[in-house]
């Protein structure tokens, strides 16, 4: 039997939305479980319920109904055991800007019961591991965003937790700092028995870091599996055609839908996306049909299904559209 590091069953959480408005349903029967030792990515747009889930599992918040166990302990009845077993890296930077890196880490270690000597040793070890050794004695307010985020992750690891929660670890970082942090988080999964729950609204991040994915939409898990399995469930490949002129009268759409093995055509201005059975045979057919009608084309690309396609499949909306809606 597989031991589960995390078990959430039917979590419901509502927030008051103001007077005379119905309460906001952040979680609507969310259920999932994570086996020990893997990195689970909770993927979804802003407001899908990812952070609420993390807050409930870290004992910060309490669900209206449903149960959850973390490292074998109930998050409501065994709060102390849960708090001892977890590390929490909140969405916003969680270090004290007035203290140095070492001071932050030592204080955290001591809170969890490490002796002064052990706390200092652990702080030194973590600073080295995250490449912050030379900044250990500087106040955190002098750190760059990427350095602060690394220190946040280190703070979550001081007491060697069994489960680490990373809430949107790279939001707001520049691409270089993001790639850097991805390397660090990627190495975490090698840690003995460490289970990581990572929330993100970056498809690329989920694809890169998570061994298991759960797609969250409107407070529910709509799909679960490895990134590869989720993508494999989608039929065929994705073909992207860029036209010189926009397909205003639907000629191109009609033309392509007549081809065998081409379906799910989406037109957005000059761009046209379709799902095909086999990319290798579909591309010449598509190009040939367009050439016959003398319709000029700028570019054609064929790709394996991305998580964006997976997201579209399960939520009926493209990820980008949802993000823009939320912004």
């Amino acid at each position: 039997m597989v031991t589960h590091a995390l078990d959430a069953v039917d979590l419901v959480k509502t927030y008051p939305a103001g007077r005379k408005k119905p309460p906001l349903r952040a979680l609507d029967g969310l259920t999932f479980s994570v086996p020990e030792g893997i990195v689970l990515g909770l993927l979804g747009p802003n407001g899908a319920g990812k952070s609420t889930t993390v807050k409930i599992l870290t004992t910060l918040s309490r669900a209206d109904s449903g149960t959850a166990r973390v490292a074998g302990h109930d998050v409501v009845r065994e709060q102390d055991q849960v708090r001892h077993a977890i590390g929490f890296v909140p969405q916003k930077s969680s270090s004290d800007p007035m203290a140095t890196g070492v001071e932050n880490l030592v204080l955290s270690g001591r809170i969890y019961g490490l002796s002064r000597v052990n706390a200092v040793r652990r702080a030194t070890e973590l600073l080295e591991r995250f490449g912050l050794t030379e900044f250990g004695d500087r106040q955190v307010k002098t750190y760059s965003g990427g350095m602060q985020r690394k220190l946040d992750v280190a703070l979550g690891l001081v007491h060697r937790p069994q489960v680490l929660f990373l809430d949107e670890p790279t939001t707001g970082l520049d691409p270089e700092a993001r790639a850097d942090l991805w390397n660090e988080v990627g190495r975490l999964s090698g840690d003995e028995g460490l289970t990581v729950l990572l929330t993100t609204h970056y498809l690329e991040e989920a694809d890169r870091l998570a061994g298991q994915l759960a797609i969250v939409d409107h407070g529910k898990i709509v799909a679960e599996g490895t990134p590869e399995a989720l993508k494999a469930e989608l039929r065929g490949d994705s073909v992207h055609v860029e036209l010189v002129d926009p397909d205003l009268d639907g000629t191109v759409r009609a033309l392509l839908s007549g081809l065998a093995g081409v379906g799910e055509i989406v037109v957005e201005g000059n761009a046209l996306r379709a799902r095909v059975d086999r990319g290798a045979t579909a591309v010449p057919a598509v190009l040939g049909a367009l050439e016959d009608k003398a319709i000029p084309v700028t570019a054609v690309t064929v790709s394996r299904p991305s998580l964006d396609d997976v997201y579209l499949q399960y939520t009926g909306r493209s990820f980008r559209a949802v993000e823009e809606e939320a912004a």
Binding site: T59, R83, H84, Q91, S95
Partner: peptide, 14 residues
């Protein structure tokens, strides 16, 4: 609270 310090503390056994 404006940073994540309060949340990290409250999720710890402090």
């Amino acid at each position: 609270m404006e940073r994540g310090v309060m949340d990290r503390m409250l999720a710890s056994p402090v």
